[in-house]
Design a binder for these strands. Structure first.
Length: 305
DNA sequence: TTCCAGGGGTAGA
DNA sequence: TCTACCCATGGA
């Protein structure tokens, strides 16, 4: 076993990142609320699979990796975990704005802002695609099915698998994906996986901070199965908060909170948060609609339970 | 049984 | 740019 301790840019709260959105419930992620242990499986560049047990530290995270990593693999794992937890992200500018807004005043003290990411943007694009026009229980089922069927098994542990590489899905058939329950999403996922595997789509290039948000959004919208909602969600994953991922929850919450319950559309949701400029998506995502210091995520979880 | 979900693609206006 | 319609599947 190897242990890495990775510092985070302050302020940082492990649990706030874990529960920033529903990803912690999707395979191969596992979260144990009682013990505060987060586990996942990663496939490294060498092809080796490793399990990561990640726990919160006062100002960062500790990563226990099995089996023992080489020095080179330690660097790779550190980079992956840094990305997944946004350890180097700085939200000072957002907090300065949020401090003056009662509905966002809880953000700084809870270190809200970081959104839990998968280690690669392909994984997150697939997961977002599996959230479209489906209930959350269905999303969990489909992602688990993809991991179980295509994921790389961990040597010596047949039960744990990493999220499948694009190439593994690319070599399958649409009929196989449909049988797994993906329905009409099957051809979209197949096209995305084949495009990524062939190099037609370079998703990791979208992490380039030098590119404009509009350009990145255009590239996201060009991907099969990625529309306005999915593109906005992925932009948030990429640390760009100019667009709100408008789903049925957003429409409902913003209608109640800002339009007196009147029927509204995607434009109205974005208009309600227009004054937050490049922090629109964060302002919406952590907005305390209930007035009880509760973000939409927490309200959504409470409704689930 | 009917409706609809953390929507997207397409055609037609 | 906006709207209407279709898309598979399972949960409510």
């Amino acid at each position: 076993m190897s242990v890495l301790v990775l510092p985070a840019y302050s302020p940082f709260q492990f649990r706030s990142v874990i529960r920033s959105h529903g990803w912690y419930q999707l395979a191969p992620f596992e979260w144990d609320e009682a013990s505060g242990v987060f586990r996942t499986v990663e496939r490294l560049n060498s092809g080796r699979g490793v399990t990561l047990k990640i726990t919160g530290q006062p100002e960062g995270v500790a990563v226990a990796a099995r089996p023992k990593l080489t020095r080179h693999e330690e660097q790779e794992v550190a980079a992956k975990v840094t990305w997944m937890f946004g350890l180097d992200a700085d939200f000072a500018e957002f907090y300065a704005l949020a401090d003056a807004e009662p509905r966002l005043a809880h953000c700084r003290k809870n270190a809200y802002g970081r959104l839990l990411r998968s280690s690669s943007l392909f994984d997150d694009a697939v997961k977002v695609m599996m959230t479209t026009n489906i209930q959350w229980s269905g999303t969990k089922r489909l992602v688990s099915a993809l991991v179980d069927y295509f994921g790389e098994p961990l040597p010596g542990d047949g039960t744990r698998r990493a999220f499948p590489a694009a190439g593994r899905i690319a070599r399958s058939r649409e009929s196989t994906l449909r049988k797994m329950g993906l329905g009409y999403r099957a051809p979209y996922l197949l096209k995305l996986a084949r495009g990524v595997a062939s190099g037609q789509y370079d998703l990791e290039a979208l992490k380039d901070e030098a590119r404009s948000t509009e350009e990145v959004r255009r590239d996201l919208l060009a991907l099969p199965g990625i529309g306005p909602y999915a593109a906005a969600t992925l932009l948030g994953i990429l640390g760009r908060y100019d667009y709100i991922g408008v789903d049925t929850e957003a429409v409902s919450a913003v209608s109640q909170g800002f339009y007196g319950g009147e029927p509204i559309g995607e434009k109205d949701v974005n208009a309600a948060f227009a004054r937050w400029g490049r922090y629109k998506a964060l302002a919406y995502w952590f907005w305390d609609f209930s007035g009880q210091q509760q973000s939409p995520m927490e309200a959504w979880e409470a409704k689930q339970a």
